[in-house]
Design a protein around this nucleic acid. Structure first.
Lengths: 211, 211
DNA sequence: GAGTATAGAACATAAAGAGAACAAAAGGAA
DNA sequence: TTCCTTTTGTTCTCTTTATGTTCTATACTC
């Protein structure tokens, strides 16, 4: 990299370009840059950009419109480490309030980001129904469940009721009873004897795709 | 990939072709493209297409009718991909209704599952605030944004208003105005002149962690 | 004063579009 | 097939607008 010493303003502009590089659908125009940096003269901005070109930070642009692109830098080595990969955990099936978990015959593995907290044994379920809609868990969402047989109050859990119905609910355990709170204005909390409810896991992550 | 630098319009048309490739029963005609892109001159569109051919994006077509086909792109993946595992895409910063995107100085890469549909260039933002709470997008959620400068009605977009405020909203474009719908009972849709609003990307995925 | 930043005007050219005229392809009807 | 009509791609010329470039003048800091 050629990188002469940049002036304060040049550095600011370079930083801005760098942090916004991936946001722009197209490279910015001088005027857009002016606006972003609080400058009102295209001419002034032009001079800065020319300096950045001379310094090797920005691609040379000859008259081209929207030609302000950062020059590809060659950083130390961004090569993906194993740390940077995803984890593979099993997708087990579907969970709908009030039905048993609808299990896949053969669980398929699916990749999730490691930073989605899959520290202990986890699995993925796909949500059916709207029972947790007020918590932002919609029909079709994927939830990552950490395998665990106990829960703290307030956690969202996969609970097996009467050894039959599996549901995703927020749990509240008080002496003598266990209450499962749906997050849907149309549904009421349900109260059970503690021995009726078995925690199968707790919610640690959630994913959704659009379209 | 051959990919010369495309102009803004060329990029738009290329994007359009790509995203509609599987929608068309057969490749579109120039006139259909004109209509789709809001151009009234076949001649103008022809020039764009020729540019895309020269850039290697579109198959050469010699006189053939309905010959506008995308060239098979070998590496459709935008960023470093470790195919079996996850995709690495840049995490750029935070988005809150009514403020500019708060950009990280240096974007960090983050792994997302490849099945979260990061077909084209994408980036990740973290949501601040509750403006989309009724759509199940909560404060602190991560959203995956596909870089795009146009949107179909009903899509959730990152929209830049007055070249200043970036927000995540559902978009509705009608002749003469563009309406941004928050998903929060306490907020009202906002209506703008189309030229006030610039789409920067559309929502394709969402993730959340609990703990 | 040297170096840096800024504003603003004037100018130059790239990009995009409109529209007409023509040519090649496609589809039908006889 | 042949003739005709319609569709669709191609070429041109002309405008308009967006955007990069150049210059000149002013101000601030060291």
């Amino acid at each position: 990299m050629i990188k002469k010493n940049l002036t304060r303003r040049q550095q600011e502009i370079s930083d801005y370009l760098q942090s916004h590089e991936h946001v722009f659908p197209f490279p910015p125009t001088l005027e857009e840059l002016c606006h972003a940096m609080g400058v009102s003269s295209r001419g002034s901005m032009h001079k800065h950009i020319q300096a950045l070109i001379a310094a090797g930070v920005v691609e040379p642009m000859v008259g081209r419109q929207r030609g302000i692109r950062l020059r590809p830098q060659h950083p130390p080595s961004p090569v993906s480490t194993s740390e940077a990969m995803g984890l593979e955990i099993p997708f087990l099936g579907y969970i709908a309030a009030g039905q048993p978990i609808e299990a896949l015959a053969i669980p398929e593995m699916m990749v999730i980001p490691h930073w989605l907290r899959a520290s202990r044994a986890c699995y993925v379920l796909q949500v059916k129904g709207d029972s947790m809609i007020d918590e932002g868990i919609l029909d079709g969402d994927w939830v990552i469940i950490e395998k665990r047989d106990w829960a703290d109050n307030g956690e969202i859990v996969v609970a097996l009721v009467d050894n039959n119905d599996a549901t995703l609910k927020r749990i509240e355990q008080v002496p003598g009873k266990t209450i499962l709170h749906p997050a849907n204005a149309n549904m009421k909390p349900m109260s059970f004897a503690p021995e009726q409810v078995r925690v199968q896991g707790i919610l640690v992550g959630q994913m959704r795709t659009y379209r």
